[in-house]
Simulated assay, not measured.
Amino acid sequence: MSELKKSDFAYGAAISALMSNGIYPTLVSSGKRRNIYKISVNNKECELYIKSSSISNNGLYDNWIFNIEKELDELNEYLSSGKKFFILLVCIVDIFSKGELVIINSDELKALLETGKKNITISRQRTGEYMISTGRKKDEYINIRYNRFNELK
């Protein structure tokens, strides 16, 4: 019997959301901490780096924490390669019924990595954006819009 992990459901949900938005990925690499897919963006290849995390409630906001410490070399390699790529973070609320997909582009990732952080902490805002803490000051963060699928086409 093939055993399914929580991440299999999360990655499947991400692929379903992509396909519902006219984006058809191909699996390139699968691992314990992430999956990598290829898509075509404006007739150029692009890679999608997908990770998942379950919700954590800190009392004020729902947030998700994605540990990237073991992937820092790989992510920096992507940034220095000049390849177009995005990170898709599957934010799980309930593995079988509810979650969110946050899309981060390479410029946003570069800004985050420059802070020296070894994780990505995402909070949902009521304004139609996600907030990624940069760990500097309380009021310094990166805003990520909801529903960025059009940037992947």
Rank of each mutant, 00 (worst) to 15 (best):
S81H: 07
S81R: 09
S81G: 01
G82L: 02
G82A: 06
G82T: 06
G82D: 06
K84H: 08
F85R: 05
F85M: 12
F86Y: 14
F86A: 02
I87A: 08
I87R: 09
I87Q: 09
L88V: 13
L88I: 15
L88S: 04
L88R: 01
L89M: 08
L89N: 05
L89F: 04
V90W: 01
V90Y: 09
V90F: 11
V90C: 11
C91H: 08
C91G: 02
V93C: 06
D94S: 11
I95Q: 05
I95V: 10
I95N: 00
I95L: 15
I95M: 05
F96T: 11
F96L: 14
S97R: 05
S97Y: 03
K98P: 03
K98H: 03
G99K: 07
E100G: 07
E100L: 15
V102H: 02
I104Y: 06
I104E: 03
I104C: 04
I104A: 09
N105Y: 02
S106D: 14
S106P: 03
D107P: 08
D107H: 11
D107E: 15
E108S: 13
L109N: 00
A111V: 11
A111W: 03
L112D: 03
L112Y: 01
E114L: 15
T115G: 02
T115K: 09
K117A: 13
K117Y: 03
K117P: 00
K118Q: 07
K118T: 11
N119I: 07
N119A: 10
I120R: 01
I120D: 05
I120P: 00
I122Y: 03
I122R: 02
R124A: 05
Q125M: 11
Q125L: 13
R126N: 13
T127P: 00
G128K: 10
E129M: 09
Y130A: 05
Y130S: 01
Y130F: 14
M131C: 12
M131I: 11
I132D: 02
G135V: 08
G135D: 00
R136W: 05
R136H: 06
K137Q: 11
K137I: 13
K138T: 04
K138C: 06
K138M: 11
D139Y: 11
D139I: 09
E140M: 10
